Computed example of a mutant assay.
Amino acid sequence: MTRRPLAALAAAATALTLAACGSGDDSADTAEATGGASSDSAFPVTIENKFGTTEIPAEPERIITIGFNDQDFVLALGGTLVGERELIGDYDATQRPWAQDLLPDDAVPTVGSDELNLEEIAALQPDLIVGVYSFIDQSVYDQLSEIAPTLAQTDEYADGATPWQEQTLLTGRALGVEDEAQELVDEVEGRFEQAVTDNPDFAGQDIAVDLTGLGGSGHYLLGQDDLRTQFFSDLGFTVPEASTELSAERLDLLDADVLVMNGYDQAALDADTLVAPLGAVTEDRTVLIGQYSSPVSAALGFGSPLSLPYLLDQLVDPLAAAADGDPATTVEQPTS
């Protein structure tokens, strides 16, 4: 399989942490309400994707997810997983609380991590392969399509930047539960709308989402081409157009109205003598998501209709404190 670029590697690394807190139960209730409602009348299904056409003749009963977050979308919509891609990083993704009530009783076999194992995929005899957030190329797609119908991202978005709403609806179509997928999108969007209403200060403020510890200066500014920034855009913040690795001379780009540091806790920030003096830090306009093994970092990486409600519970209050324009306001950092 083709090696992914730095942004994709970072996405995979962060997509590995999830967390415990109140919204997990709500998400499970939502999934139970929307999942498992597919009908034979919905099939056959034809979906155009970046590499060709996905033709699904009947309701899928054996689904393999090859993306770094696709399992959440399938579970949320009542699909049955028989295999999934192993996530890269320190966090045990099987512990993600918002999916606990939806996970199979037995461990789901994995079919590779950075590299997909096509033989293992074929051996599991899937009738649908889902890889909207998989970073596969045409060659791999063609090989997978010989095994089973394969759902890939469309060509409307950059690799890895399909909005969660679109990913939910694509997955819903593939599973024959398009109406239920729309209901799930509407419900989660309602949570965002309430957060926006409660926090008008978010609108139009520039936000820098920093992925730390990767090459060069160790800082990577995420843009609209990375799914993790969509969480902040949906709250009204303004995000840079494109992701970019920052040299030590351009760390000033982190000094936005609000700075979010993914991969840093307070100790790591204090030790970074180049970032610690920035105004966003000294004026307490910084939200620390934590190390990549933290559940909040993983929730941001998954960016799914299961993880996003949890993330709203964790980050809206810290973001509000960081965005209020008052340096005296203490930002209470998120806790798992």
Results as ranks from 00 to 15, higher is better:
Phe135Ala: 12
Asp72Tyr: 06
Val130His: 12
Leu116Met: 05
Ser38Ile: 02
Ser145Trp: 09
Gly160Asp: 15
Tyr133His: 14
Asp92Gly: 07
Gly79Leu: 00
Leu124Lys: 03
Gly172Glu: 05
Gln125Val: 11
Glu59Val: 07
Asp70Arg: 09
Pro104Met: 09
Gly83Ile: 08
Leu103Asp: 07
Thr54Gln: 01
Ala42Lys: 03
Gln143Met: 08
Leu116Ile: 06
Asn117Ala: 13
Gln95Ala: 10
Ser38Arg: 01
Gln167Pro: 09
Thr94Ser: 14
Leu118Pro: 04
Pro57Cys: 15
Arg85Asn: 08
Pro104Asn: 12
Leu128Phe: 07
Glu48Ser: 09
Ala107Trp: 11
Ser38Leu: 01
Gly79Trp: 00
Ala107Arg: 13
Glu146Trp: 13
Pro57Lys: 12
Pro104Glu: 13
Ile66Trp: 05
Ala158Ile: 14
Pro60Gln: 10
Leu87Gln: 00
Glu61Leu: 13
Ser134Trp: 01
Val130Cys: 10
Ala158His: 12
Leu170Val: 02
Ala42Leu: 14
Ile147Met: 11
Thr54Ile: 02
Thr46Leu: 14
Gln95Thr: 09
Arg96Trp: 08
Val108His: 05
Val111Ile: 12
Val108Cys: 04
Ile47Ala: 00
Asp90Lys: 14
Val111Thr: 02
Gly78Ala: 06
Gly89Pro: 07
Ile64Val: 08
Leu151Pro: 01
Asp70Ala: 01
Ala76Lys: 03
Tyr91Met: 07
Val132Asn: 00
Pro97His: 03
Gln165Asp: 13
Asp106Lys: 15
Gly89Ala: 04
Ile88Ser: 08
Asp159Trp: 13
Pro163Val: 14
Ser113Pro: 10
Ser39Gly: 06
Asp70Cys: 08
Pro97Val: 02
Val45Trp: 04
Ala152Phe: 07
Leu103Phe: 00
Phe73Glu: 04
Ile136Met: 03
Glu55Met: 13
Leu124Cys: 06
Phe68Val: 10
Pro149Met: 08
Ala76Glu: 06
Thr171Tyr: 07
Ala152Cys: 11
Thr154Phe: 04
Ser39Trp: 10
Asn117Cys: 04
Pro97Glu: 10
Ala152Val: 00
Gly79Phe: 00
Asp155Asn: 11
Pro44Ile: 07
Asp106Tyr: 13
Gly172Thr: 12
Val132Gln: 09
Ala148Val: 15
Gln143Ile: 11
Val82Arg: 01
Val130Ile: 14
Arg96Ser: 09
Val140Thr: 15
Gln95Lys: 13
Asp155Cys: 03
Asp70Leu: 00
Leu169Gly: 03
Glu86Gln: 08
Leu116Thr: 05
Pro163Arg: 05
Asp127Glu: 14
